[in-house]
């Protein structure tokens, strides 16, 4: 239970840094832009180095300890290693050949690709971490609603979509708590979890999942009633309490975040 009480939603670390203070909309736009740029970046040493400076700047502006970022790379260590090995031993032909045996070959181009592809992955993770470490899930959901607003014109239910997202996130801790209770209740009835082979383990999850689902439906029903009782009728005539406005800071951030990578593309 104690773990659940402090369960972090996403990996947001509250703070007052410059990056925390920038509007989530600007951060999302820049993150997406940088992710696109990574794939367009020319495969040479300078453009990757200079791109890294931008990420480094972001890390500094977030004033978060560096080990948060190192930790965020953990889930992709294996993937990075795998990518590196594949490209290193089985990569592109071309340039000097250092070693060849059957299908294994180490070449200039292969080494280059191995390096850049791994860096690409690392950069991707670092950029998304910068976004999620400094932006709360709530800010993200609202920013996505704002950014998707133009889709209203093609009849995409933007408000409903973001309301769904917000509610889903809001209920994560509640459902976790409930799962915990159900597990304890089933254990008290003699259920065993995590024993036997994969199939019997999966089977032992059923007594958790079924009550959880039933309760979730009941909750959804009650929540819908409570929303209706509070005059909810979709986006119609609805205002927002938190209105995010663009500040000078956001605009400067946006300009640098968009122009710098373009310069990289042009000059290197």
């Amino acid at each position: 239970m104690e773990v659940l009480k402090t369960f972090p939603l996403g990996q947001y670390i509250p703070g007052n840094s410059l990056l925390h203070g920038i509007s989530a909309k600007a951060k999302i736009i820049v993150s997406f832009w940088l992710i696109i740029i990574i794939f367009l970046l020319k495969l040479n040493f300078y453009s990757y180095l200079l791109f890294f400076f931008l990420i480094l700047l972001g890390i500094l502006l977030s004033s978060l300890p560096i080990n948060y970022f190192v930790r965020s790379l953990k889930p992709v260590y294996f993937l990075v290693l795998f990518t590196f090995i594949i490209h290193f031993f089985f990569g592109e032909e071309g340039g000097r050949v250092y070693f060849r045996y059957g299908i294994i070959h180490i070449t200039d181009n292969g080494i280059k690709m191995a390096l850049f592809m791994s860096l690409r992955l690392i950069y991707l993770v670092l950029i998304t971490s910068l976004l999620t470490l400094t932006t709360s899930v709530l800010e993200l959901a609202q920013a996505i609603e704002d950014l998707l607003k133009p889709l209203n014109f093609v009849k995409f239910p933007v408000h409903e979509f973001s309301m769904m997202m917000t509610i889903a996130i809001r209920f994560v801790p509640t459902l976790l708590e409930e799962t915990d209770k159900i597990i304890k209740a089933q254990k008290a009835r003699g259920a065993e979890f995590g024993k036997g082979n994969l199939i019997s383990q999966a089977k032992s999850l059923l007594p958790i999942i079924i009550p959880l689902f039933i309760n979730a439906f009941r909750r959804a029903n009650e929540l819908a009633e409570a929303m209706e009782a509070r005059c909810y009728r979709g986006a119609k005539g609805r205002t927002r309490y938190r209105v995010s406005r663009w500040t000078i800071k956001d605009l400067v951030f946006l300009t640098i975040g968009i122009l710098y990578p373009i310069l990289l593309l042009v000059f290197f």
Binding site: I167, E222, E225, A226, M227, A229, C231, G237, R238, Y241
Partner: peptide, 29 residues
Amino acid sequence: VFQNPDNQIIGMTVEEDVAFGCENLGLPP
């Protein structure tokens, strides 16, 4: 006001939740 407090709180923070009804009424921030 309903019986189960968990199933009638919509907002992710206290103020967001209190604001929910007012937002539906279309009040200015």
